[in-house]
Design a protein around this nucleic acid. Structure first.
Lengths: 208, 208
DNA sequence: TCGACTTTCGGAACATGTTCCGAAAATAGC
DNA sequence: GCTATTTTCGGAACATGTTCCGAAAGTCGA
């Protein structure tokens, strides 16, 4: 009695969920940067090209797997006070400012901004729209921003697993001009800058 | 009389400026995405691996070439009215918001923000700092953001040469959650959103 | 003149993502 | 059973970035 699976043709040797599970195993072992198509195929005991019958490309595969990790990040609790809610919105927007125009706006919107609405939504739309306005076609922007997406979710993953915050270090060599400005305005302490900028965002969001 | 070049060893068959010029030729012909190491070497009539004796990797090469293009972008003229200067600052910041955390902040800072100073500088520092605070180590962030840098400068190049603005099109499929929000707040017209967001940024920048 | 030294060159090889296309393995119809 | 059909599999091949290492081509000192 041949095993039937409800349709014609050669039976699949694996499935998309199995592929994602194997990818998770590799990521947990060595990190998402070390995931290669051939390694993943070896982990599954199949040929490398077979993967391309289950996912469009490696890009789609990583998006699928890393999105699973992103869903593990607990969402912040929304305060009752509207002004405090605005603070949460501003913080969320700051995450978007850190380099997540599309993908991160999507991710963030899914869990948080959709419940805030109003000016926060508008400002995020401004952020997202700015990328397009700067000359991006959506297709290319999505492709480029995806690497940011990988990176950010990869960092989220690190945080989930290690519960440790990576050391925050600025290398002046990486930002010579900003560093030069910092020398000309030595009064700009890091904490002051943070609070000032956050206040700027919040005051811009608050109604008069 | 053997040609002397002032030092010992086999004479170089090419130089870094020649490599950059050849890269520019390829970029002008087919765009920066089509630049490959082997193609560039063929353009120069040398072996592919020889390039690695003049630049560290393709990354450095593209940064060098595209930075030349970036320098061609004319800087906006600074208005006299301080409040109008703030508008220019806000616009510049919006460019940074579009996804240029480090490299673009550098690029923008070099020509513009360094002359504005004050709160504009602080807010850009907030933007840049946010990336680090979200868990980026500078090394990896620079690496990831570099692709944005390529992309953005590539677009600048397109604009320089064609003087045409790429069509601005939003594909709702790329941003399902934002699109869903847009449907729930249909009153958010694009122009209103733009002005509101710009006003939010400006009012946050202006002193009380 | 001639060997020693120094610097650069570039072919061969490797890792990786991806595509092509024929083989393999099941079912369906007769 | 046997052929046709359908679906999946995966080896071979290709493009690309990069490294290794021996060959090539100069200068320098005796």
């Amino acid at each position: 009695m041949p095993a039937t699976h409800g349709r014609t043709g050669r039976p699949p040797v694996t499935s998309r969920p199995e592929i994602l599970a194997a990818a998770r195993r590799l990521i947990d072992a060595d990190g998402w940067e070390k995931v290669t198509v051939r390694r993943l195929a070896a982990e599954l005991g199949i040929g490398a090209t077979t993967l391309y019958h289950h996912v469009r490309d490696k890009d789609e595969l990583l998006v699928l797997v890393l999105s699973e990790y992103a869903r593990q990040v607990p969402l912040p609790v929304l305060p009752e006070d509207p002004r405090e809610r605005i603070v949460v919105a501003a913080t969320t927007i700051r995450q978007a400012l850190a380099g997540w125009p599309w993908a991160a706006a999507e991710f963030t919107t899914d869990g948080l901004l959709g419940r805030l609405g109003g000016p926060a939504v508008q400002l995020v739309e401004v952020i997202v729209g700015a990328a397009v306005e700067c000359g991006c076609t959506p297709e290319r922007a999505v492709h480029v921003f995806r690497s940011l997406w990988y990176y950010t979710v990869g960092e989220i993953l690190v945080r989930i697993r290690s519960r440790a915050r990576p050391p925050v270090v600025f290398a002046p060599a990486d930002t010579p001009h900003l560093s030069a400005i910092g020398e000309r305005w030595p009064a700009l302490a890091a904490q002051d800058t943070y609070e000032m900028g956050l206040r700027a965002l919040i005051s811009g969001l608050l109604p008069e």
